[in-house]
Simulated scan of single mutants.
Amino acid sequence: MTIGEALKEEQKRLGLTSEAMAAGVITKGTYSKVVNGKLRLSSDLLVEILFKHNIDISDFFEMIKSTYMPKEKLIEEKLFSEMQQALNNHEVEKAEECLTKIKNQTSNKYLQQRAEITVAYLTNSTDKLSKNFKQAVVDELNNHSNWVNDLDALRLFNTALLILSSEKVEIEMNLFFIKLRVVLVKSF
């Protein structure tokens, strides 16, 4: 769904006319061109329209994601969701199938490592993960310059807590908070 199509959908949901949807932000003619795909809207004006009508930005972007997000990211997101569902429902076979898909369909190392850990967790075999694998996970986190702001790295960190010794968890948590402090200090 395009931005214009999503705006038209929200307009219909709200029961507004084109004029009411655009009022105070852009002209009715400009709005018409946007919803018909003949004109692009700046991000500032889009956000202004969304806020003006109390349209949830997350929901709006969810509507348009399949049109604008890179295909590889869409695949990763779908696979991540499938793996989460398998984990939440304790469905070992689905998790194993998802792991195979992840290995075959994406090059996202974080997602692959998380899937390995998830399957090991569901099959009660986390102790069978090799020391090299566990060290690779820790190295991935520690070699990342700013993983505190990287959602994939944070997810890996969260999942890695299942396989690391309590001593390693304590070390990684301390490193996490040190990196977080650095990020917070730099932002002020």
Rank of each mutant, 00 (worst) to 15 (best):
L79R: 02
L99W: 08
E140Y: 11
F51Q: 13
S107P: 02
W147V: 03
L141P: 05
S125R: 12
E116P: 01
E97S: 07
P70D: 12
A95R: 06
Y68R: 00
F60K: 01
K134Q: 07
L87I: 02
K109Y: 10
T100L: 13
Y110Q: 03
Q112T: 01
K73W: 01
Q84P: 04
D139E: 11
V148T: 12
A120W: 08
I64S: 03
F80N: 00
E82C: 05
E93I: 00
V47W: 09
Q85L: 15
K109Q: 14
V137P: 08
V47R: 00
H90F: 14
A120S: 10
Q113N: 13
R114S: 11
K71Q: 14
T106K: 07
M83D: 08
K131V: 03
N149L: 13
K94G: 09
N54C: 10
N146P: 02
P70Q: 02
F51K: 00
M83R: 00
Y121I: 00
H90E: 13
I55W: 12
T106Q: 04
K101F: 07
Q112L: 08
A120F: 05
Q113G: 05
K101A: 12
Q85F: 15
L141Y: 09
S125L: 06
V47G: 01
H90T: 11
N108G: 03
K52P: 06
S125V: 03
I75D: 07
N146V: 06
K94D: 15
T126W: 03
I117H: 10
E82D: 13
N124L: 10
N149K: 11
Q135N: 10
N142A: 07
V47H: 06
Q113I: 09
M83N: 07
K73L: 11
N149I: 06
L111A: 02
N108Q: 06
H53Q: 08
C98F: 02
Q112V: 01
H144E: 13
F133W: 04
Y110E: 12
N146C: 04
D127G: 00
K65H: 12
N146K: 05
N104T: 04
A95E: 07
L122R: 05
